[in-house]
Design a protein around this nucleic acid. Structure first.
Length: 305
DNA sequence: AAGGGAACCAACCGCGTACGA
DNA sequence: ATCGTACGCGGTTGGTTCCCT
């Protein structure tokens, strides 16, 4: 389908916005609302394309935008949500009041991603680096990325729980997911999924601690034994009404370009609407929890692809 | 002080999708 | 059901600032 250009490039100003342009845009939207972004510049008297106006408003001018450095809490939230949602910046931003997807995306790419990788390599200096380089399949790459983000989140959770002097930290699968699931982040995640209609209220309530504990320990990696390369979730998960069988062949990369994997968590299931939740629920229990990373790495050796 | 590279971040681009005609 | 339009999103670019030599 042909797509009309968002604006006539001729005579449209580009580049940094001036304070005068900002004021014009703010005044217009305060008085009239933004209405149609396409026609807004003309009505407001701005020599900008509608897209540019929209971006400027959303990222900088609209009320409630929080500027300045990210707090530790915000960082932690971003890392944890990224581990669950991948590069769904808008979804992550919706959980951080006053922060925009663009800001979070930039912050991740310039600060957090490096830190997560450093943290990961500190734990698995040679092996993980080698595996990252050697591995080719999209699902494997995604798992490596997932693992890297998870390690960072885990480290933070561990620090948090230490400071709170709580009994158990994140050494086991159920503990880790339960902490995540019951945290504010987990609540936000469930809200997103409820909104998307992926998980109903009742389903969420059914996904109680015991279910989740079971799910962590009972997800079986059938591919190991059958060679069918399909993942099956334990029947215990039926109550949560999740898809029980997920052929890994339907696990496709959004971008085929090899560069994409390192930046993107966007490996989607054919039905991508609840892929993040599926990621959580389909993770085999012996994937990459502290002290068990070798198992995780063994899984990466082709068997899982 | 100057130049070159790295880091940062605002803005742009193009694709997918929702929605109305 | 199909088409055209507009919007929202994620990836990328390019200008600016910072830092090191």
């Amino acid at each position: 389908m042909g797509k009309a250009p968002c604006c006539d490039k001729h005579g449209v100003k580009r580049g940094a916005w001036t304070p005068e342009e900002d004021q014009t845009l703010v005044d217009y939207i305060n008085n009239h609302g933004h209405g149609s972004w396409r026609t807004l510049p003309k009505h407001a008297g701005l020599l900008r394309c509608g897209k540019s106006c929209r971006l400027r408003w959303i990222n900088y001018l609209r009320p409630g935008i929080k500027r300045g450095p990210f707090t530790d809490e915000e960082e932690s939230t971003i890392i944890q949500l990224h581990a669950m949602l991948g590069n769904r910046w808008a979804a992550i931003a919706s959980q951080l009041q006053g922060r925009t997807d663009n800001e979070i995306k930039n912050y991740w790419n310039t600060h957090l991603k490096k830190r997560v990788l450093r943290s990961l390599e500190a734990k698995r200096p040679c092996v993980m680096a080698d595996r990252i380089v050697q591995t080719n399949s999209p699902s494997t790459r995604h798992m490596v990325q997932w693992e890297s983000a998870r390690v960072e989140a885990e480290a933070r959770l561990s620090m948090d729980s230490t400071s709170l002097n709580s009994a158990s930290t994140t050494k086991t699968c159920p503990d880790y997911f339960l902490q995540l699931w019951h945290s504010e982040v987990g609540q936000s995640f469930r809200k997103i999924k409820e909104k998307e209609g992926v998980v109903s209220q009742s389903q969420v309530s059914q996904a109680s601690s015991s279910k989740l504990e079971d799910s962590c320990s009972d997800v079986s990696l059938q591919a190991k034994n059958t060679g069918t390369q399909s993942l099956k979730v334990s029947p215990k998960l039926e109550g949560i009404d999740m898809i029980q069988e997920q052929s890994t062949s339907s696990y496709k990369p959004k971008l085929e370009d090899d560069r994409a994997w390192s930046d993107s968590g966007n490996y989607e299931f054919l039905d991508s609407s609840d892929s993040a939740l599926k990621h959580l629920l389909h993770m085999p229990d012996d994937i990459g929890f502290l002290g068990q990373t070798d198992n995780f790495l063994n899984l990466l050796d082709g068997r899982y692809d």
